[in-house]
């Protein structure tokens, strides 16, 4: 059992990753983790607001067949093929869910369950049949290979070496996410909060819905390499959920989401170094730990705060409204 949980050595866990030899790869992994969590978390905030967290789960699963088919058809691993495949998969998933939900009496939750498991099953079969051709394996599908990010050729642009291709791609997607949210902030907010009002303001809620799903597919597919298809859901929901326990104002939540992304990514690397386990999973565990901390210690609504309030403010029940007089 001793070799199962490695000895905790401060030097090895906290300092070694940032020393000369490991510094570069640690930095790339941390950056990738941060970018993935930040981009996913920002988009995820809208999923949480729209009560569509599990649609996010569905789409993150169903990009797999999209990627697999795109790679098979294009016989390459080009980024274009990947994005096209993911977009198609995202739209197909959304359409299937809508069709099952609206054409039958099957409710939305079952429709989501049916749609993504079917597509994911197709993806897994394709991957296991043509593993060599699509250059994906089942482990990668499950929890990604963020540790391999710094390996291989770096992308360079106009003679300047930028970094590992997946990190560069993710950085572009993250920047684009921030930009899109900044530009369409009003539309997203209104259509998430009140579709009726959105319609009266001339915002096409259906269009916003599909656009969000498409962008979600893009974000998910760029994160795919790093964290696989299943852990993405954690990146989508955990930052936003944690932030919304601390604040109720969307701009603050957005800021906290990014902070959460940075913290969980760096802490995750240290946890993975200590336990020698999957880095992506370790990042999620740290993200969950941060959520747990917010859950307990949140200044507005934390468990501790609630408990204290209960202890200090007896009796718990107080009439808050002026009572009509008994006659």
């Amino acid at each position: 059992m001793n070799d199962f949980i490695p000895h905790f050595d401060f030097q090895r866990v906290f300092l070694a990753p940032w020393t000369a030899n490991n510094l570069e790869s640690t930095a790339w992994i941390a950056l990738m983790g941060f970018l993935v969590t930040a981009a996913c978390g920002l988009v995820g905030n809208y999923l949480i607001l729209r009560r569509m967290a599990l649609v996010g789960d569905a789409i993150s699963h169903s990009v797999l067949p999209g990627i697999a088919i795109a790679f098979l058809l294009s016989r390459s691993r080009s980024a274009t093929a990947m994005f096209v495949g993911a977009l198609a998969a995202g739209i197909v998933t959304t359409v299937i869910i809508e069709v099952i939900h609206h054409k039958t009496r099957v409710k939305q939750d079952s429709a989501i369950g049916i749609a993504f498991t079917t597509l994911f099953a197709i993806g897994v079969i394709l991957v296991s049949l043509f593993a060599a051709k699509v250059d994906l394996d089942q482990e990668c599908v499950l929890y990604g290979e963020i540790a391999f990010v710094p390996l291989g050729e770096f992308t360079s642009f106009a003679g300047i070496v930028l970094g590992p291709p997946s990190v560069v791609r993710m950085a572009i997607v993250t920047l684009a996410t921030v930009l899109l949210i900044a530009v369409f902030y009003k539309e997203l907010l209104v259509s998430s909060f009140d579709p009726g009002l959105a319609a009266s303001l001339g915002i096409n809620a259906v269009l916003v819905h599909y656009a969000l799903m498409c962008w979600l597919s893009v974000v998910v597919v760029s994160a795919f390499e790093a964290v696989g298809a299943i852990l993405v859901i954690a990146m989508l929901i955990l930052p936003g959920a944690t932030a919304s326990l601390i604040s109720q104002r969307l701009p603050v939540i957005m800021g906290l989401t990014v902070l959460h992304a940075a913290l969980s990514s760096v802490l995750g690397i240290h946890l993975a170094t200590w336990l020698e386990c999957s880095t992506a999973a370790a990042m999620v565990i740290m993200a969950s730990t941060l959520f747990g901390a917010a859950w307990i210690f949140s200044p507005t609504d934390g468990l501790l705060r609630r408990w204290l309030r209960k202890r200090l403010a007896e009796p718990a029940v107080e009439p808050t409204v002026q009572m009509p007089q008994n006659s």
Partner: peptide
């Protein structure tokens, strides 16, 4: 009866 500390019936 109270929901979330707000009395509904008093």
């Amino acid at each position: 009866v109270a929901y979330h500390k707000k009395p509904v019936l008093w």
